[in-house]
Computed example of a mutant assay.
Amino acid sequence: MSERGVLLVNLGSPASTEVADVRRYLNQFLMDPCVVDLPWLPRRLLVSLILLRRPKASAEAYASIWWEEGSPLVVISQRVRDQLRSRLDMPVELAMRYGEPSIEQGILALVQQGVSEILLMHQYPQFADSTITTVVREARRVIDQHGLKVRLTELPAFHDRPDYLEALAESARPHLEGGFDHLLFSYHGLPERHLRKADPTGGHCLSSPDCCERPSPAHARCYRAQCKSVSREIARRFNLKDDQWSVAFQSRLGRAKWIDPYTEVELERLAARGVKRLLVMCPAFTADCIETLEEIGDRGREQFINAGGEELVLIPCLNDHPQWMDVLADWARREPVSA
Rank of each mutant, 00 (worst) to 15 (best):
T134D: 10
R79I: 00
N239W: 09
V150Q: 11
G254I: 04
L8S: 02
P316H: 04
E310K: 09
C205R: 05
E311Q: 14
P14L: 05
E100H: 10
E138K: 14
V75L: 00
P191W: 06
E268R: 14
V9L: 07
M31H: 13
F238A: 08
G70Y: 05
T286E: 00
P209C: 08
S77R: 01
L110H: 12
A235T: 09
D82N: 13
R53C: 14
A139W: 13
N27E: 15
R334W: 01
P91D: 03
L49I: 14
G179Y: 06
S208M: 03
V9K: 04
L108T: 08
F127R: 10
Q226P: 08
E335G: 00
A287V: 08
R44P: 05
V136N: 13
S2H: 13
R214W: 03
A235F: 06
A272H: 14
W324Q: 00
Q250R: 07
A271F: 11
A272Q: 15
F249I: 11
E213C: 06
P336N: 05
Q28E: 15
A220N: 06
A332G: 02
C227T: 12
W331V: 02
L253Q: 01
F238L: 06
N239H: 14
L314P: 00
Y223M: 00
V9Y: 06
Q78C: 01
S216R: 06
T201H: 07
G178R: 14
K149F: 13
